[in-house]
Design a protein around this nucleic acid. Sequence first.
DNA 1: CGAGCATGGTGAC
DNA 2: TCACCCTGCTCGA
Length: 268
Amino acid sequence: MPEGHTLHRLALDLTQAFGGRVVSVSSPQGRFAESAAQLDKTQMIEGTAHGKHLFCEFDGDRFLHIHLGLIGSFDLGPPQPPRGLVRVRIATEQAAADLRGPQLCALITRAEVATQVAMLGPDPLRADADPDLAWHRIHRATRPIAALLMDQTILSGVGNVYRAEVLFRNRINPHRPGNKLIRRSWRRIWADLVELMPQGVVTNRIDTVRPEHTPQAMGRPPREDDHGGEVYVYRRAGMACLVCGSKVRTELLAGRNLFWCARCQRRG
DNA sequence: CGAGCATGGTGAC
DNA sequence: TCACCCTGCTCGA
């Protein structure tokens, strides 16, 4: 679930449900009980996101800093008895948000939020993002572009799905070292992320396949991948490339499974 | 029922 | 580069 779009969507939903309201904060699981008690029955101001980091601001310059990691989830809906291990619940009479399995959940100050945000590269989902900041580091790096895209200090919010898909959509060789990537390619990548990721916020899923490449348009039977989105290469190892038909390849890159089409992706 | 896996990140060597 | 953390789901015995 969690790449940048998930956290930005959560920030919007949490703001709508709890912004400006006095909320109950609890820790059914108990692992966050002390901090939850400090926030309980105080006002939540709003939720904001930077990259994959979520910040819930509470009255008195207190911020709940959440990072979902690989397996975390934060589910918002009508109040129901907690299921499973709920680290934190934020709730009103009308709605409850249950946090499970986060990599990070901590009560921090405004200054600490600023410190955290300063460590992150530009986020394609933020209007104030400056892609040149990322380019400055990319064009001097020797690591492959597929690794640089995952480095949250270079740019933030992109995860394993968006990295594979944005490289495919722009026909870029994932192994191209940053310092051999031409600037036009970087501009294409950034512009594409700025187009794709806000769509992900709206739909709450990752869809990257252009209309002309959908199974219908290509005369193939419809399909739906198990991660909840239509994609070109992510987790399609060994299957036919939707554009050229050659086998989608996979390998471990930067510790994660990379997927790409060696025939379509040759640009630098 | 256990093993393995997942859209992530950290800290130790 | 590796072990490890957090949780839930799926797959094969």
